[in-house]
Amino acid sequence: MLHFADLLQYSDVFFSGLLTTVELTVLTTILGIAVGTSCASIRQYGNKTSQRVVSIYVELIRNTPFIVQLFFIFFGLPALGVRLSPWEASMIALTINLGAYSTEIIRAGLASISKGQIEAAKVLGLTFRQTLTRVIFIPAFEKIYPALVSQCIIVMLGSAVISQISVEDLTYAANLVQSRNFRAFESYLVTAALYLGLSILLRFAFNSIGKRLFVYREAP
């Protein structure tokens, strides 16, 4: 028997959980893409040693589960004297995770910009900065934008795991409510619906940002 009404009194718990999830998502998306862009640039244009370091980072993260990375950062690192709050540990773990995946994605975009384009820009007298933004990064990002958006959403959904180290996100709210009124199914169902709404909203937001970012083509 389903009793959704029992959840109403906990709506503020769900709401604050939702806020935490959104806050962490926005923050780690920005930081993660920044890490990804830097690492991708190193992979594409850096020297051999730095390329190797970046690929070790990327492979380590891509080939281990997020929950293990999170436990390692939160529980393992204190043994080395590094103590982080649950929120900090989650933010770092999520950023490192998105950073590794977006490195691969962005690198593919950078690789698609041929040397000829860059030389052409030089010949046309574009400044270094103009070349970097208009010839390299914006076209590269446009190519891989859908993949990048999907990855950000995957990381947002993956963030459900941070409830395990007591971060009060949306999943934590579901578990807390479930442990108070024992309405596990209703609580998880509502939470799943909230996540679904969040991922649809996130995709929508990204698409409108994308439309602004990549308008230059429509210019006369």
Binding site: L2, L157, A174, Y188, L189, L196
Partner: peptide
């Protein structure tokens, strides 16, 4: 695809585990 790509795997597991028994 939207449904299962748009919700966390963790939530899907909770729902399958506790939800199905509820039904």
């Amino acid at each position: 695809v939207e449904l299962f790509q748009g919700t966390p795997l963790l939530m899907q597991m909770f729902l399958c585990f506790f939800g199905l028994s509820m039904l």
